[in-house]
Write a protein that binds this DNA or RNA. Structure first.
Lengths: 348, 348
DNA sequence: CGCAATATTGCATTCGAATGCAATCTATGG
DNA sequence: CCATAGATTGCATTCGAATGCAATATTGCG
């Protein structure tokens, strides 16, 4: 070969600088371990030493290498957040809150956005090599997956999901209570012909919302309530409302939707395609309290999830599981906050 | 010493398992380097060796430690994504796309959600220690910050942001072209009394949309177009529209908003507070093409950003900057796609 | 001033995988 | 059957910081 392979020039032109603790040590005339200790809170270092080292570190522009630190210390200060449908309006707020809260604890976030719930397997394989300290899952996982976490001693907190009959930790909004509040309000306002636009059957919280609603309706003596299955999207809310409106004669007068976005879709269907308006001709309620639920054109009656409290809980739980291995699992359920709007005839 | 240092018990109780390449090597009866090579694509390994090692790895449940790998190889396979306002409806889609695309390249995403643009400094300090391979910034950075990237030889691609007079790479939607299309359509449909609800002055793309609009308006002979400054939120769109509607007598008949969400807010203000409806009494256009812009109650005329193309470009650019250090910076501008809806009287 | 108790510091090793180099093996050609 | 180029493999070292232990410095007290 004519050309020699010798790309390693001693001084790279644009001065890139992997300053290490050794460089700092040399520059300050101390040992590498001294440098390391100066950057570790609570380590035994004299004031004089700390000053010298910090000065040298500043002069050289030293930043500890988190990768190397992780390797030896066994803590990466990374957590993974698993989210299945980021484009669901509800999640961006959750994600932002989680990220900022972790950040305040010195923990960084590795994001994994699943295309579909089915990708969980593959995604977990991507997570393990990074030796994250813990995982927040806002996505469905199978019992096998959860068992894998246990086997590894990997802290896991579900966010608004959980596994029936499983002891894994989670934070959740009280779907049951929320559903009841909504039903009661509609009932008290005189509604008797209700229908449900539910979430997809794979969605645990969706099923719970639906089940709780049906139970409450039965307690109130309302049977045969139509239940249609949507997928949480605007389009499905729109289409299913259309189906209800054009169904066999008697359109319900109140629709309970499994989330706000479908409620919005439903409202639009009734309005645009049937000239109906809420709350005079029809009542529609949602769930979540996403931003657009407050937009004047919709002004939904809904149950708002206390996102701040819930994310704070999730972060606190995960961090304590990380810092005290072996601490017991925990399940925290927060009540939603009823917000009444103009989308429904409603009486608390 | 009475007790020998031999903490390495063969079987840890609750089977947590830091299986290393040494364990695999021992179990397969080969050297650690052989194991390492088996997990490195393109390395020189015989078929027999690969089988033996893989079998052993499977039996022990070995997964390469990405942290250790990063340390020695100098590549972390991590990129940081900086986003300033995740709750802006436009970003979740972008984030999901970016994450999935990076994922397909074997690159993981560290997410940094800024509370405000001013947090960039602090956030950068959090990024450096992780030795990420590159950064996507959907947030404003100062020239000093960008210089810092250059000094470190750290690949950086701006997403829908850029620094005037700076050579840093970016992908962007063609704000100017989009603004012109919108203005022309309104003009052709007969509108002459237009107003602008602009973005905040710190927002580079906002300013560009505004400037381009004003230029075009001037070319068309329309001067003295009122410009109000919003902050991209529904509330600000609503409030500013209200101001226009109740202003000194003559309400404009067409409003150009710097993003969809403000356009939606404006529409609601005209409708709810003034009984006006679009496109009969007023025309409103937005920018971005977020999900709700298609909702029937709004059906915005807007310019949709080609998010798929743009994210693909950003990912491709960043990865090639990572893999071929020293490759030149690049700026890629994509035209938006005009989408006409019922929110405006419009003629292409 | 002397000695024990305590506080700092440095030394040497460790974390787990990658890799240059040398040793060994394999296949090929004569 | 032997020499030799090429393919495999193992050895030893490296990445950068953390840490147990031993060496040294400091402090306090009698």
């Amino acid at each position: 070969m004519a050309e020699k392979t010798r790309p390693k020039v001693v001084s790279i032109k644009s001065g890139n600088q992997p300053v290490t603790s050794y460089d700092v040590a040399r520059h300050a005339g101390v040992s590498q371990s001294a440098v390391s200790r100066c950057f570790k809170p609570g380590a035994s270092v004299s004031e004089k030493m700390r000053e010298r080292v910090m000065k040298a570190a500043d002069e050289l522009g030293y930043e500890p290498n988190a990768i190397a630190r992780s390797l030896i210390s066994g803590r990466s200060n990374l957590v993974a957040i698993l989210i299945s449908n980021l484009t669901n309006l509800y999640y961006p707020e959750v994600l932002a809150e989680l990220t900022q809260r972790f950040s305040a604890h010195g923990v960084r976030v590795l994001l994994f956005a699943l295309k579909s719930e089915a990708d969980a397997n593959e995604t977990l394989q991507q997570i393990w090599p990074y030796r994250v300290d813990g995982v927040i899952a806002a996505a469905e996982l199978s019992p096998d997956h959860v068992a894998e976490f246990e086997k590894r001693g990997m802290p896991l907190v579900f966010y608004n999901r959980y596994l029936a009959g499983n002891s894994a930790s989670f934070v959740c909004c009280d779907q049951e209570d929320g559903a009841r509040q909504l039903i009661d309000g509609l009932y008290n306002a005189g509604h008797r012909r209700m229908a449900i636009i539910a979430g997809p059957p794979e969605s645990v919280v969706g099923v719970e919302r639906k089940t709780a609603a049906l139970e409450r309706l039965e307690e109130l003596g309302l049977d045969d309530v139509p239940v249609l299955e949507g997928d949480y999207s605007y389009e499905s809310g729109f289409a299913l409302a259309e189906k209800l409106a054009t169904g066999n004669g008697k359109c319900p007068d109140a629709i309970i939707c499994a989330n706000d976005v479908m409620a919005i879709g439903a409202l639009d269907a009734f309005r645009v395609n049937h000239g109906m308006s809420a709350p005079e001709d029809i009542s529609v309620v949602g769930f979540d309290g996403v931003g657009p639920s407050n937009w004047k054109s919709y002004d939904l009656t809904t149950v708002r999830q206390p996102v701040r409290r819930m994310t704070e809980a999730a972060v606190t739980m995960l961090i304590s599981m990380i810092e005290e291995p072996g601490s017991p699992n925990e399940k925290r359920v927060f009540s939603g906050i009823l917000k009444t709007g103009a989308s429904a005839r409603f009486a608390e």
